[in-house]
Amino acid sequence: MKPFTRVTALACPLPIANIDTDQLIPARFMRRTRKEGYGPVLLHDLRFEADGSPKPDFPLNRPEHAGAGFIVARRNFGSGSSREAAVYALADYGIRAVIAPSFGDIFAQNAVNNGLLPVRLPEDAVENLILNLSAQPAPITVDLENTRVEAGGLTLPFVIDPVWRTKLLNGWDDLDLTLSHAAEIRAFMERDARARPWMAPSRTG
């Protein structure tokens, strides 16, 4: 996984609340494998007309936001379905962090598991960013090391779970860590099988 330390890029404002994962990646595109790439279908039905042509007014389609590395959106970003493809779509499109007042829990966990940083800022700070970025598109910096966003002379500190921060800074995968505890897991499961023999699915099933 690609580590996230300090990234400077254009930020695209998406002044929409409740951008759920169905909007991030409509279900009909989820049959594709990861290798096929999910970037082209990110926010498909918001970005494109029914005939497949881009909607010129949609922020991500505007020339001044081309190549954006961040998205700034309103509350409850990534709510809904647990589909990790929503994160694949953002990551494959080139988004490194999403800034919003709140995130769907499962989405945020999926994001961290794929090196995408969910930055939670207070609602008024987000509204301010949206206003400024809409008036004058400019690169901003997301600094995970120092947990702050630097935007046009403004420094906005954010709070992130220290576990997520460490994981993202190092680009770590949970699996290696878990496997290092294999003996403890085995011991737990043996003990548990004796304590709760009823937990095992019945053989009559």
Binding site: N113, T178, I185
Partner: peptide, 16 residues
């Protein structure tokens, strides 16, 4: 859970 977590549970029977 998401797909990465599904893979983790498949491989280890556990989840962080």
């Amino acid at each position: 859970i998401g797909a990465s977590e599904v893979a983790h549970v498949l491989m280890t029977g556990t989840l962080w």
